[in-house]
Write a protein that binds this DNA or RNA. Sequence first.
DNA 1: TTGAAAGCGATACCAT
DNA 2: ATGGTATCGCTTTCAA
Lengths: 358, 358
Amino acid sequence: MSQRKASGDSGRATIRDVAQRAGVSVASVSRVLSGNYPVSDELRRRVMKVVRDLDYVTNAHARSLAGGGTPTVAILINNITGAAFTHVAKGVESAASLRGWLTLVGTTGDDPERELALVNLMRQQGVAAVILLGGAYDYDEYQLRMARFARSLDAADSHLVLVGRPPLEGEVPATTVDYDNEGGAYAMASHLLSAGHRRVLVLPGHAELTTAQGRLKGAQRAFEAYGVPLDPGMVRHGPYDYEHGYDAVEESLRQGAAFTAVLAGTDVVAAGAAQALRAAGLRVPEDVSVVGYDDIPLASQLTPQLTTVHVPYEEMGRAALRAVADRRESGRRRVGDADHLVLGTHVVVRQSVRPPSQ
Amino acid sequence: MSQRKASGDSGRATIRDVAQRAGVSVASVSRVLSGNYPVSDELRRRVMKVVRDLDYVTNAHARSLAGGGTPTVAILINNITGAAFTHVAKGVESAASLRGWLTLVGTTGDDPERELALVNLMRQQGVAAVILLGGAYDYDEYQLRMARFARSLDAADSHLVLVGRPPLEGEVPATTVDYDNEGGAYAMASHLLSAGHRRVLVLPGHAELTTAQGRLKGAQRAFEAYGVPLDPGMVRHGPYDYEHGYDAVEESLRQGAAFTAVLAGTDVVAAGAAQALRAAGLRVPEDVSVVGYDDIPLASQLTPQLTTVHVPYEEMGRAALRAVADRRESGRRRVGDADHLVLGTHVVVRQSVRPPSQ
DNA sequence: TTGAAAGCGATACCAT
DNA sequence: ATGGTATCGCTTTCAA
């Protein structure tokens, strides 16, 4: 019944099927296909004909077991739906495919268990690198956890790459591709301050998220630089989503908070904030200015177009992959050897900021 | 120098390393790890200890060569940045990970060459299925091309799944997960017509794209049903992006076209259209109504919130994976056996439609 | 319950 | 330029 290997009938054709049918050795078929070895035209013709007839493709698993194999990188995201992450992923994928590499994607849903499981799964796959995207929750064990990931991957000839979060402390075999998060926030807040705003509602994000921490710190530094006190009551933490932006503004308004501008942690939060302002009969930017962070497409599609901080997400993705590829080519480097890359950010001035009216 | 296998030092630890160090056979280690075989507690303890010490994970390539292995599905997208696709991908990924499956992602950039290369690459990987996302360009060879993909994959014990596009003609071993594209457009157009709109600017998308064709056809049917002639000059084709929406409206206005509503092919196009209307001093929806299609988050984040057609993208992704998984479990089915699934769509009424003012 | 050994499909070294 | 074959790491009979 289940006569396996009856005649290359069921399942995929193997290199042996091709060899047999072409009347040559498997070694020859392998040579023709990899193309990195001198082969007679006659042989090549014979083999390729059969390859086409059988619609043969080599078994990637066997190949990578035997030596060769397509390098693969894994990218782990919290939520594939986030526009910012999506652009990093695009950068990684495009740079990978440019080199003929494959990209695996896994989503963690902010679940440490799942993150661990995925890192191990990727290790099993023998990926060239695991790229972790997005800000991290800075809980106690975080550093240890990441250090463990890094060492595990390193021991398996793989590599850990952190994108969009601060580098790890100590001598850990990991690469970080980050952006000037705090600097961007500093510039954005300064933009608001120099326009004359003094009372601004700040929505940095979750207090434990590294990106939110950086953005808040940048804003605080700007306020200090301008000698303007930043009322702690004007800082509201919450998730990076539309609802949070909306709710935070609505609530502040209800509590009678007086502010002439909103400094949001992301463009999506800014969108929610703007909507809440409008719902309260306030005009943006005539009555209240609103700024975001990230510069995702949404920012320029809103009305008014959002003034925000541009983060080179796609470029970060490309940089991450380049770092991995370089490291492969030039043999592994020593720990701590230029493992940290920081890309610049800058304010994109659009239409959502005006000097305070009164 | 390059003494390989000196002592399981360099590279990943193998099952042999574990066996040796635990003083048992590789077979036993394999049994302990796969857990699908009776094993003494003592043995298990010994093996697991070493596994932890060595931080060992099995080599997925070797495993899948030998028989077992993690099922993997590939999802091929034109542009990973599109919000709609992203949600399908999320559905696929979540359903996959629920079963312990892996997800590979590749982007084609609308390039047939690359699409072919990717399908073959995925075939090499021995994926359980290749999921093609998004509308297709209905050029001549399309059907033949897809049929070839389908047969190739089928012959390799894999499977082709088409998501968001019409099913293939004839007896082709492929599964289609689609949504009622035309029906949604019909309902959306009817909504506009029943509100009293008679002159509406239609921006269905690229004329060759199957989704655009369906959306246009649905709209046309609605106009017919209402006995309202749809001026061909009021239909403008173009890409599914913000710029197209903006430009199309701007140009129509410049040419003096008179319309009281815009029926856009996607939410993003609608966003562009709305922006252009505002730029021209027209209010939405007081002066001109605007509707979209897809119901991506953007739709409810715009001002005014967009009335649009909801498409269950994430659910489609889940359905696609379920179809593949079912097919695996229950052995392959015969060609043409309930290979076509169509999910419903419906209008989501929000704030961007008003009866025409005059 | 445990071990030995035969593949799985491809690569690359060693002969010819 | 070609062919034979050991090998990659693991799973799975087949014996013990």
